[in-house]
């Protein structure tokens, strides 16, 4: 099993074998309009999931694109890219934020946790385990954002009741409508947290 190539590795190879680290895997989210005045890339040093990382990004790059396209951390998802869906939720210095409306160049020295950094080694975070147990997803695209938001919600002390969980999860949209199982998973995880 270990030798099997992953779906993403296949896609990266198909796109021309571009390296994931420190360079965008594709150019779609960079300054794609050639008529626009280009600014030179700026260095930004972050701690992502406990690891120091220096990226050279276009000034306009969102934290979301920096994580996905420059750092190779594709667990954080791009849904609306306008702050309306919550799929890109990460923790910035311990607080949940949406990474699509965060400029990477303003994150100098910040501590960022993504879905890839939530588990403790091979031990899933209680919210991750609860989402599996309660089948808190259908297509799974919004799930990393849901889980990052839910983990923060429990720490904030907003899991007191189902209505409270619903209200404090309102920044995460699930178009499959897996909400009942998402709520059940959070309720379950909060008891053990």
């Amino acid at each position: 099993m270990d030798e099997l190539i992953t779906r993403r590795e296949v896609m990266v190879v198909a796109a021309g074998g571009m390296a994931l680290s420190q360079a965008p895997a594709h150019g779609a989210d960079r300054a794609s309009d050639a008529s626009e005045k280009q600014t030179s890339d700026v260095p930004v040093s972050l701690r992502v999931n406990g690891r120091a990382l220096t990226l050279h990004v276009d000034q306009r790059t969102s934290l979301l694109d920096a994580l996905r396209e420059y750092a190779g951390l594709t667990g954080t998802k791009k849904g609306c890219d306008r702050g309306a869906c919550g799929a890109c939720t990460v923790h910035l210095d311990g607080r949940r934020v949406i990474s699509c409306l965060t400029l990477a160049s303003r994150c100098q020295g910040k501590d960022i946790t993504t879905i890839e950094g939530l588990a403790n080694g091979d031990q899933l975070h209680p919210v991750q385990a609860a989402f599996i147990e309660h089948d808190g997803l259908q297509c799974g695209y919004c799930t990393p954002g849901q889980i990052m938001s839910a983990a923060a919600l429990i720490k904030e002390g907003h899991a007191g009741s189902d209505p409270e969980i619903r209200e404090w999860m309102s920044g995460n949209i699930c178009r499959c409508g897996a909400y009942p199982n998402i709520i059940a998973a959070i309720r379950h995880a909060s008891r053990g947290a």
């Binding site: 949940r96 934020v97 949406i98 919600l153 404090w168 309102s170 920044g171």
Partner: peptide, 9 residues
């Protein structure tokens, strides 16, 4: 107003 994530920002 907005969502918990946006209110944090």
């Amino acid at each position: 107003s907005a969502s918990p994530q946006i209110r944090n920002m």
